[in-house]
């Protein structure tokens, strides 16, 4: 970046304001991201694409919120997500197919919560390693999901009522009803999660991910807190799956593959903007990150990326984001070493 040297030489920054230097520099990637996103939206995407990305982004925000609970609050990457997302899809599709789209959404949440309880119980009561516990539940869910979908790997809701078509009929013509429905559900989810994390129970769950010793010493059953945490996390994930299925009027038994990584990528993108210092910033990170992620994907498609590369793309984002601190350290070390060598040579 050619303008970075301006900061280094103090041309822009007054010395007395040096404390703010770090803030300004950390602001740069945010600015670049925002500008790039706006450019994408303006130049590359049609209105339909913008709406589509926004709708998907809103729905996947719920997924990101669920993953935020397991990944950031409980500090455990929960692989159940890939299965519970499809579980939500399967349950929601079956109910909608039989004419009960709303019950389908509620049932999806409940089913997801149960799968979370299973993973939680495996981890805490039976001492299965966290990652392995997720994989076990995920694998079991493959079969269970297919059973729920009556053996069909995909079910179409063509001409069936969904929550989206229901509100389409209720709302006046020309209103972007899909965005309103998705945003409405997301709003409820966000309010719930903010409220819950500030209750006694929610605080106990947060503390469990932070310091288990302290939690047990405060007469809190840390095992139970983890199980509740996983239940809520996977309830959210399944809700997201259930809404997606009705949004697309289509349920696919393989739809959940890679959801954990996609959700984690969203959260990481969001954290570039808002950080992860308070609950509010974490929730904002999940929501905005998921929406930004969808726009990035739309953009990638518009410049010729194929849908089959999505997972590769999100895997690279997550891997890079996790590696950045190490890469930075390596770069600094190399830089110092080179500087030392240069110094010696001139001396």
């Amino acid at each position: 970046m050619p303008f970075l040297f301006l900061f280094k030489k103090g041309i822009i920054m007054d010395k007395s304001k040096r404390i703010n230097k770090n803030k300004v520099i950390s602001f740069i990637p945010k600015l670049i991201l925002v500008v790039v996103l706006l450019l994408i939206i303006n130049l590359k995407l049609t209105q339909t694409q913008v709406y589509g990305a926004l709708e998907l982004g809103l729905i996947y925000s719920i997924l990101a919120l669920g993953i935020f609970i397991s990944l950031r609050i409980l500090d455990i990457p929960d692989l159940t997500v890939d299965g519970s997302f499809t579980l939500g899809v399967a349950v929601s599709v079956i109910f909608a197919y039989n004419g009960h789209p709303f019950i389908g959404i509620v049932a999806a949440i409940a089913a997801g919560a149960i799968s979370g309880i299973v993973t939680g119980a495996l981890q805490t009561k039976l001492n299965v390693q966290p990652i392995l516990a997720g994989i076990i539940t995920l694998t079991a869910l493959y079969s269970i999901n297919l059973h729920i979908m009556d053996g069909n790997p995909n079910i179409s809701l063509w001409k069936k009522e969904t929550i989206f078509t229901y509100f389409q009929g209720k709302l006046p013509e020309g209103v972007p009803y899909k965005i309103i429905v998705a945003a409405g559900i997301l709003l409820i989810a966000v309010v719930f999660i903010y409220w819950f994390l500030n209750t006694q129970l929610g605080m106990a769950i947060r503390a469990t991910g932070d310091n288990e010793y302290m939690v047990r010493a405060s007469s809190i059953n840390s095992d139970r807190m983890k199980i509740i945490g996983f239940a809520i996390a996977n309830g959210f994930v399944a809700l997201s799956g259930g809404v997606i299925a009705q949004y697309q009027s289509y349920g696919d038994a393989n739809g959940g593959t890679g959801m954990l990584v996609a959700g984690a990528a969203s959260i990481i993108i969001g954290e570039v903007f808002f950080g992860k210092h308070t609950i509010v910033s974490c929730i904002l990170s999940s929501v905005v990150g998921a929406i930004a992620y969808r726009f990035i994907l739309s953009f990638a498609i518009s410049i010729g990326m194929e849908a089959m590369d999505f997972k590769l793309f999100s895997a690279i984002i997550v891997a890079l984001a996790i590696c950045v601190p190490t890469i930075k350290k390596m770069a600094t070390r190399t830089y110092r070493r080179m500087k030392d060598k240069g110094g010696n040579a001139s001396a």
Binding site: N198, T199, Q200, L201, A204, R206, A207, S219
Partner: peptide, 25 residues
């Protein structure tokens, strides 16, 4: 708990021996 504030930590400890409910922390 390092990522929680002083008041949140005290709030958790203040609930010792009580059931954790959905009341505000």
């Amino acid at each position: 708990a390092p990522n929680m504030t002083i008041e949140e930590n005290l709030g958790l400890a203040y609930g010792r021996g009580k059931k954790r409910t959905l009341a505000f922390g």
